[in-house]
Amino acid sequence: MNRLVLIGNGFDLSHKLKTSYNDFLFYYLKKILNDFFSNLSYEGKLIELHSKSSINGFPKMETLDDLINVLNILKHKRDSNLYIKYKSQFFQEIINSFQHNKWVDLENHYFSYLLKMSNASSNLVDDLSKLNQEFEHLKIELENYLREVVISDNPIQNPAKFDFLLEDIPDDQLIDSKPFYPTSIENIHVLNFNYTPTFNVYAQHLNTKKNTTINFIHGELNNPDNPIIFGFGDEHNDEYKKFENKKENQLFEHIKSFKYLRTSNYQDLIRFIDGNEFQVCIMGHSCGLSDRTMLKEIFEHKNCKSILIHYHKWGSDTHENDYVNKTYEISRHFTDKGMMRKKVVSFEKSKPL
Rank of each mutant, 00 (worst) to 15 (best):
residue 320 E to V: 00
residue 16 K to P: 05
residue 289 L to I: 04
residue 342 K to Y: 06
residue 116 K to F: 08
residue 23 D to R: 00
residue 128 L to S: 09
residue 316 S to C: 04
residue 295 L to K: 08
residue 97 S to H: 07
residue 244 E to W: 04
residue 64 L to V: 01
residue 239 E to F: 11
residue 278 F to W: 12
residue 299 F to W: 10
residue 249 N to T: 13
residue 317 D to T: 08
residue 57 G to L: 03
residue 90 F to W: 02
residue 217 I to P: 09
residue 135 F to N: 01
residue 181 Y to D: 14
residue 170 P to H: 13
residue 4 L to M: 11
residue 18 K to N: 15
residue 248 E to W: 04
residue 234 D to C: 00
residue 45 K to W: 02
residue 240 Y to C: 10
residue 28 Y to T: 00
residue 37 F to S: 00
residue 220 E to S: 10
residue 277 E to I: 14
residue 77 K to D: 07
residue 86 Y to N: 11
residue 71 L to C: 04
residue 190 V to I: 15
residue 212 T to E: 10
residue 280 V to D: 13
residue 352 P to Y: 03
residue 191 L to W: 05
residue 100 H to P: 00
residue 266 Y to T: 08
residue 257 S to T: 15
residue 217 I to W: 05
residue 320 E to Y: 00
residue 318 T to Y: 04
residue 67 L to W: 05
residue 32 I to L: 02
residue 67 L to M: 03
residue 71 L to D: 02
residue 67 L to R: 03
residue 227 P to Y: 01
residue 340 M to S: 13
residue 40 L to K: 09
residue 118 S to T: 07
residue 46 L to K: 02
residue 165 L to V: 12
residue 89 Q to W: 07
residue 338 G to M: 11
residue 135 F to T: 01
residue 198 T to C: 07
residue 129 S to K: 15
residue 63 T to K: 11
residue 121 S to H: 04
residue 319 H to S: 14
residue 238 D to R: 14
residue 197 P to G: 01
residue 78 R to M: 06
residue 110 Y to G: 00
residue 90 F to K: 00
